[in-house]
Design a protein around this nucleic acid. Sequence first.
DNA 1: GATAACACTTGATGTAAATCAATTGCTATT
DNA 2: AATAGCAATTGATTTACATCAAGTGTTATC
Lengths: 192, 192
Amino acid sequence: MIEVFKTYLKGKGNYTEEELEKVASVAVIKKVRKRQYLTQEGDVAKNHAFVTKGCLRTYTVDEKGIEHILNFAIENWWIGDRESIQTGHPSIYNIDAIEDSEVALISKEKFDRLCIEVPAFNDMINNILQKSFLVAQNRIHTFISLTAEEKYLSFLEKFSHLNMRVPQSMIASYLGITAETLSRVRKQIVKR
Amino acid sequence: MIEVFKTYLKGKGNYTEEELEKVASVAVIKKVRKRQYLTQEGDVAKNHAFVTKGCLRTYTVDEKGIEHILNFAIENWWIGDRESIQTGHPSIYNIDAIEDSEVALISKEKFDRLCIEVPAFNDMINNILQKSFLVAQNRIHTFISLTAEEKYLSFLEKFSHLNMRVPQSMIASYLGITAETLSRVRKQIVKR
DNA sequence: GATAACACTTGATGTAAATCAATTGCTATT
DNA sequence: AATAGCAATTGATTTACATCAAGTGTTATC
């Protein structure tokens, strides 16, 4: 499935054939079965991960045992706790697969070296970062200004593909509402 | 006040004296009086802004006339709608000063050129972006997992300096709660 | 020094969403 | 085919927070 990664790279930056090989060659493919962890709370994250197949999520579990989902990642998305990778501090997040999945792992060291040695890679990563930031800003805005129903509608607009793949209870968690509330909200929407 | 900007640059990157001048020379100092807009909803944002003095905020106003504050920026922070600047689309945000302030403006064109011509600048900006992203992630996490009181305590931990400068009603808005709720939450906290 | 203009507090009431609990479907496994 | 194990729905109840409405205190403004 390294081909998925290469295709992605081609679409995202101006790589020479040589650079492309260089980037792809440091990636290590790993299968992650449904419910299997990629990283657990307390671990120091060592790898950036690119999803070639399946779907994963980043989340925490609070004292009451409730899961709070921070992010999903499907094919052609990156996932990983940048904070932990960069600082070397233990991660506060869990990452696991919610479908049988496959990721391309790149170790921090190799990733950092790529950023230096392959300008196209560096630019690509910074572009992604920029985009991720804007998405995050936007999501913050939904939290401070929208009702449960509006949050869900906004989610549908932006991530309808996720809506079809991810259990409702997880979408609720991602939106910061309960599964019951989401169920009722959906009923309301359909009714109109 | 361009000195504030130069001092900041020195602390944030490995600039040669020449590069430092180059960066500083493209910045245009602008005074922004309290309540004066830097950008308004509907405008296409043209400049990145670095705050050399004072305090500004990014916010929206909903149909009911309620303000939702997305960000504050004080001395040594950047502010501006990256999305609008990059895409050329009208901004959905208002930015105004909540104290008499002063900013260093850098136009999109000059900013982009600096990113290309001054590697230290590019690296610095990407570092800031990375940090901004992590802060945003963190804030999202507070929204999906904390109560009003916990959100405020978390805010205090991270931004106590802002707490002293910004009206409570605006902090409430930033936290996605009402001013009344914040007032009661504070009373609770003091009581213990 | 009176008056306005905010910023914050406090109380009464309303409501969206959470919680608790039971039921109905699925699909997965034996 | 029976059983277990989730995922979603639905109803009853509670609660955290919002809303509405007066108040008080503090700082500007004429």
